[in-house]
């Protein structure tokens, strides 16, 4: 069976991805840009589903849409006047930037689309390795399990490193984002008082 994603689903999701992404970079209200980002993330999760990477789709929703995007929305709420439209949202040279980006797009498309890829017509995401952990695993491994084993066998080190990465960014972010009780507050402080 050749893997053949449903074209209607693909084009719908692709339109949603592109449309929401455009809204992210052009929306006049920052909060709307944030919402559009969540839309993009969900659409990308849908594409993962279309690509049969279900676990990743769930992780995308859980971590990306659920944690990262929500955190960004919080940042918007904490720093931004609630309703002020972000009128001057663009730099002075949006057209130059647009031209640059179109050039980049041309290069990327030219580079990728003309290449030959090592793709196989096969459909299953079957791993080509044998687990060494002593677990009895059936021949057709569901992908979540295969993913877990893959994380255990060759990708142990990066897996551990990611936890260190998150730990250090957490420590540092706390320090930088927190107010320093030992020092006086920044000038021009407004009347607001955060808890």
């Amino acid at each position: 069976m050749i893997y053949d994603p449903n074209p209607v689903a693909f084009w719908l999701l692709a339109a949603m991805v592109a449309g929401c992404a455009l809204a992210v970079v052009r929306a006049r209200k920052l909060f709307h840009a944030g919402l559009a980002l969540v839309g993009t993330l969900f659409a990308v999760a849908g594409l993962y589903g279309l690509l049969q990477a279900w676990f990743l789709a769930a992780v995308q929703v859980l971590v990306y849409a659920g944690a990262i995007a929500i955190m960004l929305l919080f940042a918007i709420m904490l720093t931004h006047n609630m309703m002020n439209p972000d009128l001057k949202s663009l730099t002075t040279q949006p057209w130059t930037a647009a031209a640059l980006c179109l050039m980049l797009l041309a290069i990327l498309l030219g580079g990728t689309l003309s290449s030959t890829w090592q793709t196989a017509p096969d459909t299953t995401l079957s791993p080509t390795w044998t687990p060494k952990c002593g677990f009895q695993v059936a021949e057709a491994i569901p992908s979540v399990q295969a993913l877990g084993f893959r994380l255990l066998d060759p990708f142990t080190l990066p897996f551990e490193m990611v936890s260190v990465l998150i730990l250090v960014s957490l420590i540092g972010a706390l320090v930088v984002a927190r107010r320093n009780p030992a020092l006086p507050e920044a000038p021009e402080g407004r009347e607001e008082k955060a808890p």
């Binding site: 990708f155 080190l157 990066p158 490193m161 990611v162 260190v164 990465l165 250090v168 960014s169 540092g172 972010a173 320090v175 930088v176 927190r178 107010r179 320093n180 020092l183 006086p184 507050e185 920044a186």
Partner: peptide
Amino acid sequence: TGELLTFFVAFEIVSLPLYLMAAWNRN
């Protein structure tokens, strides 16, 4: 490391704290 993504993750362990250290003087 002899693997691209591991390198990337490792280098993020270097970069992210350094971004924050650059902003260390919070006031």
